[in-house]
Design a protein around this nucleic acid. Sequence first.
DNA 1: ATGGTAGGCCTCCTA
Length: 265
Amino acid sequence: MRIATWNVNSLRARLGRVLDYLQEHQIDVLAMQETKVKEADFPAAEFERLGYQVAHRGFNQWNGVALASRLGLSDAAVVFPGQPAFGKPGQAAAVEARAIGANCGGVTVWSLYVPHGRGPDDPHMAYKLAFLKALAADAADRLAADPSAQLALVGDFNVAPLDTDVWDPAAFEGLTHISPAERAALAGLAEAGLREVTREHLPGEHLYTQWDYQQLRFAKNQGMRIDFAFCSPALANRVTSAAIVRDERKGKGASDHVPVQLTIE
DNA sequence: ATGGTAGGCCTCCTA
């Protein structure tokens, strides 16, 4: 069984690449983030033609998360318990399209798009920290209810846990993605009992999953490692390998993120 | 030469 996560940065702009990737890498379950498409425009038929069932959550051109599975897809949920809402000051807060989970081939897979944060003092940062805190609390509840749960929280976590997960920590000073508060919030997932399995299998330094479009970041290999797979112990024990598909950042029409995939026995 | 992006509800916002 192979599970992958990929921030596609617009599914409609990337559909050909995504469908090619599914077939080339024999992906059974793909969790997508930043689909940037509203429900009515989601290209479900294109996935179904290849034998995948899909579940999607998207309201407009922002955010959007989806699952595609060829091992079955049931019990889809479009928010997790405690998932916080967000609204700009003066506007109503709403729960955004940043989480979707379902049972795919006996594994509860959640596709997650953690808020960016925008800046250390931006209200979006408090939202980011609250989102991660709620996610960890929910994971702890799930593991308490079922210690043998087959659970995978995968996606774009928008936090680089180690200094070696970015090309130059000094370049991020006073910005986002590497602050102690963000790293502590992400560490809550491990404290809840989950294991980040991609690093277990790919412990190397400077193995990036995202390179900004600006500043020729990919050409200079100036990226960030911010896409991960947090698994319950019972599932983590079944993971035999992980891969970061760096080649997907190459060429015309690439997302700024690449797929991260797990092979599970 | 100190710049050099991409996407979508597209002259603004988000990343």
